[in-house]
């Protein structure tokens, strides 16, 4: 088993953190993981993406030709990465900002109003965790509970224990919403 996941969106949407929480959840779940950020001269409002690889064996390349899943937090991200996704792959799309669906028929699209759901939770900055929760519904390698734990560890290390509860709710909201979309999950 080796799964590549790309998180992409605007700088400031918590793209890199969402990827890191997934990588950490995978690690704490006993998998081999790698997390590779795009690190050009980027800034808030520019583009950001990262690649997470989850595997049950030691990881060679931390870059992937055909990622198994994509979290597209804005329209340019879907335009850029949809063609690269593996056959039958998964695309979580933030429909609050992306007003089109996937063009490929082989993909499983998971349209989620990520930004809207985060606002509803009065946690406008937790859209990244809503999206990660939605992704986890389609990802059989890492359970939601591992991600909740990894997120909590991450917040604690940053001295942000007060945000653990809200981020847990965001993860669960995304997971639940995706359940309505992904058939048989």
């Amino acid at each position: 088993m080796e799964q590549g996941v790309i998180f992409a969106g605007f700088g400031g949407q918590g793209i890199l953190l969402a990827g890191k929480v997934l990588a950490r959840a995978g690690m704490e779940h006993g998998l081999e993981v790698s997390w590779l950020p795009s690190y050009g001269p980027e800034m808030r409002g520019g583009t950001a993406n990262c690649t997470v690889v989850l595997s049950d064996e030691l990881i060679g390349a931390p870059i992937v030709d055909a990622p198994w899943a994509l979290v597209a937090m804005n329209a340019p991200s879907l335009d850029r990465f949809e063609p690269q996704l593996a056959e039958g792959g998964l695309a979580v799309i933030n429909t609050s900002l992306v007003h089109r669906s996937v063009q490929r028929t082989d993909l499983t699209a998971v349209p989620i109003p990520v930004t809207q759901l985060a606002h509803n939770l009065e946690m406008p900055r937790a859209g990244n965790m809503v999206a990660l929760g939605a992704l986890l519904r389609g990802l059989d390698s890492v359970p939601l509970q591992s991600a909740v734990q990894a997120m909590a560890h991450e917040m604690e290390e940053r001295g942000r224990e007060s945000l653990v509860d809200a981020n847990r709710k965001a993860l669960e909201a995304g997971y639940e919403e995706a359940g309505k979309v992904i058939v048989g999950s």
Binding site: K20, M27, S34
Partner: peptide, 10 residues
């Protein structure tokens, strides 16, 4: 190189 410097692994 920059990739090894920037990436995370366990």
């Amino acid at each position: 190189d920059g990739m090894l410097g920037q990436m995370m692994e366990p």
